[in-house]
C-alpha cells in the first residue's frame, strides 16, 4: 500500500468541492435577516438577544454568572469570559450568522444564532396559492 497516489488529489478536491457547494447553498438559503441569539443552559432556552447593531453591552445569565457574553456594535455576539478550563467557547469568536453556534460544554451553555422567524425549520414552506 502506498502512502500517496496521484488520484488522491482528485479525492481531496471532491471533498473540498462538496464543502464549497454546501457553503454556497447555505449562503443562498439563509440571507441576511436580522438574526437573534438564543442562549441555552442545559438544553433549556434561558435568554434571547436581538442582534441589533449599534449597541455594545456585556451581560451574563443568572444560572452562570461567571460566564459573560459580549454583544458588540456590529451586531456580533461572543463569549467574553468564562471559568471553564479549555476556553473553547471564547476561542470560537464572534457570531452573527444564522446557524452559527458556540458552546461552553463544561458549563452546559450553548449560544446559538437563529433566524428571527419563529419556525426556523419551516423556511422552505411556500404559503399561498
Amino acid at each position: 500500500m502506498k502512502f500517496f497516489k496521484k488520484s488522491d488529489l482528485l479525492v481531496i478536491s471532491v471533498i473540498l468541492a462538496v464543502g464549497i457547494i454546501i457553503w454556497i447553498l447555505y449562503q443562498c438559503i439563509y440571507t441576511d435577516k436580522a438574526p437573534i441569539a438564543e442562549i441555552y443552559y442545559y438544553s433549556e432556552l434561558v435568554e434571547t438577544v436581538s442582534l441589533d447593531k449599534g449597541t455594545d453591552r456585556k451581560f451574563s445569565i443568572p444560572q452562570e454568572p461567571n460566564v459573560i457574553f459580549h454583544l458588540d456594535r456590529e451586531g456580533r455576539i461572543c463569549f467574553e469570559e468564562s471559568d471553564c478550563p479549555d476556553k473553547v467557547c471564547i476561542n470560537t469568536g464572534k457570531l452573527n450568522k444564522v446557524g452559527q453556534f458556540a458552546a461552553c460544554l463544561p458549563n452546559g451553555i450553548v449560544l446559538k444564532i437563529v433566524s428571527q422567524e419563529k419556525n426556523n425549520d419551516d423556511v422552505d414552506i411556500v404559503v399561498g396559492n
Binding site: G19, I22, S43, K97, F101, K112, N120, D121
Partner: peptide, 23 residues
C-alpha cells in the same frame, strides 16, 4: 452527538469547515 444533545442545532454551516479541517 452534539446534535443529539443540543436539539435543533444546524449542522450545515459547519459541514464545509469540518470537511476542510478533516482534510
Amino acid at each position: 452527538v452534539i446534535i443529539l444533545i443540543y436539539v435543533g442545532m444546524n449542522m450545515w454551516v459547519y459541514l464545509p469547515v469540518l470537511l476542510l479541517s478533516g482534510v
